[in-house]
Measured scan of single mutants.
Amino acid sequence: IGSLMYASIFGNVSAIIQRLYSGTARYHTQMLRVREFIRFHQIPNPLRQRLEEYFQHAWSYTNGIDMNAVLKGFPECLQADICLHLNRSLLQHCKPFRGATKGCLRALAMKFKTTHAPPGDTLVHAGDLLTALYFISRGSIEILRGDVVVAILGKNDIFGEPLNLYARPGKSNGDVRALTYCDLHKIHRDDLLEVLDMYPEFSDHFWSSLEITFNLRDTNMIPGSPGSTELEGGFSRQRKRKLSFRRRTDKDTEQPGEVSALGPGRAGAGPSSRGRPGGPWGESPSSGPSSPESSEDEGPGRSSSPLRLVPFSSPRPPGEPPGGEPLMEDCEKSSDTCNPLSGAFSGVSNIFSFWGDSRGRQYQELPRCPAPTPSLLNIPLSSPGRRPRGDVESRLDALQRQLNRLETRLSADMATVLQLLQRQMTLVPPAYSAVTTPGPGPTSTSPLLPVSPLPTLTLDSLSQVSQFMACEELPPGAPELPQEGPTRRLSLPGQLGALTSQPLHRHGSDPG
């Protein structure tokens, strides 16, 4: 009997000691992992102490058991019943959930998450997105703005933001810190809205009876308010094209079509300037034949640059190039080494500058006005007194259609001029006259002087055409309008007829 009692007592005591040691061994194993994590990542002392304290409290609170892992091991129907039991206190005593059906309560219970916070733990920081609604079931918390405590909340209090009033989550206007050990039930806004969409009859009752104890939403960050730039940057990543407008005076608003859609830094370009900076079609017209890549860069430059609305530039004389043409100036200075066709295309550029300027006046029909002061630039669209967005969009579309028509007509005119030049060069190729044979009589004449090349004649003739079109064909006081194609086609051969009437002889060394 004594040996039996000794064996039973010894066996029970050893089993008890073994169970104690097993729990202690698990605790030390998990604690060792936490300390190894702290050492590996070199976490500083204040945060390291918070980690160790939280682990110790969580171990004593749950005995080292992962409740979520245990809950996920059950089937979904059983999980709903378990969640309904775990959140029964909240669902029974909170006013917004009263009167809900059994199915609605089960769906809500599945969406709730339980959070346990030790003292000093910050649940929400200032500036964080308010993605959830919090219900306090135990403990107390404090809300701070800077170093000032603005509120202390306790059991059955609710904090967050009214989700039904805002389409997008706002930002917190303060820090939420736990004063004691707290148990909180939180539900994400997407989950709550999903359940309320499934039960629309409960939705009206819920929003009407929901009383948020403390609204954390920062009202200064609401979209459309003066301080909402940061919020707009976070939620409006896919922005449309940006529009900046110059201020319109009362006198300017009476004149229709007073602005032109141009790229940034293009205030001095012609009315047909689009795409790359520098001139019509993204580059100076005089350098068009020598740089074919300008047409390839036109599309990307047009689509990537934001639109700006600026006044037209001052008018340019008909014979003056659009500006920024070092290529043609070098050719004029060193005409001995340049291609003979460069002079002809220089005359073509003069005609283009004249036609572009006159067509700009035809479509816009307003006098040039000086540029406004820099303080009046970049007025935002949302400022008071601005035109409605639809009106601005319609004006932009009208300007775009005008620019497209202008570009089409300029292309047709350019093709006409090039065809005339090619026809003239085919009839009378460039050549130098040879020395004529002296006559049989004693009164022999001296050799004839060489005839100037055709490109120079073409430049003079085209300059005469531009001056003739600019000065004589337009009646005084009438708006400057571009001439039609047949009129220009008839004027060019008439001007060139006198020049080509002389018999030109080919030089023996000319390969053409």
Rank of each mutant, 00 (worst) to 15 (best):
I351A: 06
T131F: 14
D128V: 01
P482R: 08
P289G: 13
S303Q: 13
S287L: 01
A371S: 07
D183L: 11
Q495Y: 09
G360F: 14
P503R: 08
R506Y: 08
L399Q: 02
S209C: 09
P256F: 07
P493C: 11
R389Y: 12
V195Q: 01
A267Y: 09
P264G: 15
V465R: 11
L129K: 10
C182I: 08
G170M: 03
P455E: 10
K155N: 08
D204L: 12
I187N: 01
C471L: 05
R237H: 07
P223K: 05
E161D: 04
G356F: 04
T253A: 12
G270I: 10
V150K: 03
M328K: 04
P479M: 11
Q402P: 13
R359W: 04
S272G: 12
S334T: 04
V428Y: 09
D175H: 08
P326S: 13
N339Q: 12
S209H: 13
S172G: 02
P388R: 09
A434R: 14
R138A: 10
D336A: 12
P380M: 06
Q464R: 10
P326E: 13
G265D: 09
D357L: 11
H505L: 11
F354Q: 07
S304G: 13
L129A: 06
L496K: 09
R248N: 09
Q402Y: 09
S313Q: 13
S375E: 06
P315N: 05
P455A: 10
P476Y: 04
S137W: 05
T416V: 09
L420T: 10
R145A: 08
P438H: 07
G263D: 13
T443P: 15
T416H: 06
A167Y: 09
D397L: 07
L366H: 08
V435M: 11
A415M: 11
I222H: 09
M414S: 07
G324V: 11
G282M: 12
K242M: 10
S287H: 10
V149H: 08
T458Q: 10
Q400A: 14
N404C: 11
R241L: 09
E161N: 01
I152T: 11
S394V: 11
D197L: 09
T445P: 15
G288Q: 08
G299L: 05
R248K: 11
P450H: 13
S334G: 12
R506V: 10
S461E: 14
I152G: 01
Q464K: 04
L449R: 13
P447Q: 09
S287V: 08
A167Q: 08
R359I: 12
L376P: 12
L144I: 11
G288W: 15
T416Q: 06
F206R: 02
G265H: 11
F354V: 07
F468L: 09
S446N: 09
Q364W: 06
D413G: 03
K251A: 13
Y363R: 11
P370I: 09
S203G: 12
G268K: 10
L376A: 12
G146D: 14
A167C: 12
Q238I: 11
S273W: 15
P482Y: 04
R248G: 10
Y134C: 10
L165A: 09
R423Q: 12
S375Q: 14
D250K: 10
G299S: 13
S236I: 13
S244L: 09
L341S: 11
D183S: 10
V195T: 08
A267R: 08
P438F: 08
I152N: 06
D147K: 07
L376K: 14
A415T: 12
G227M: 10
F214Q: 03
R168S: 08
S294D: 15
A178W: 01
R308C: 07
P372V: 10
G257R: 08
L499H: 15
R359A: 10
S353I: 03
S382T: 08
T180P: 02
S260C: 10
S236V: 12
N156T: 08
G227P: 09
L454W: 08
D157I: 01
N173L: 11
K251I: 09
A344S: 11
T249E: 10
L481M: 05
V428Q: 14
E230R: 12
I351M: 06
P479A: 07
K171F: 10
I222V: 14
P326Y: 06
E254R: 10
T219S: 10
N173M: 14
N156E: 11
R389A: 11
A415N: 09
L496P: 12
P226F: 11
V259I: 08
N404H: 12
N164R: 07
P256Q: 10
R246Q: 12
P289L: 05
L366F: 05
L184A: 04
A269Q: 10
G497H: 07
P289D: 01
A415Y: 04
G323A: 14
R247H: 08
E329T: 12
D191L: 01
R247L: 09
P479G: 11
S287R: 04
T426D: 05
A261P: 12
V435S: 11
N156W: 07
R401V: 08
L421V: 07
T373L: 10
T219Q: 10
R145L: 06
M414D: 05
M425K: 09
L399W: 13
P321R: 10
V259S: 13
L403G: 04
S208L: 07
L184W: 01
P388A: 08
P315A: 10
I212S: 02
D191I: 03
Y181D: 11
G233A: 11
D510N: 13
L377M: 10
A398C: 15
R361Q: 09
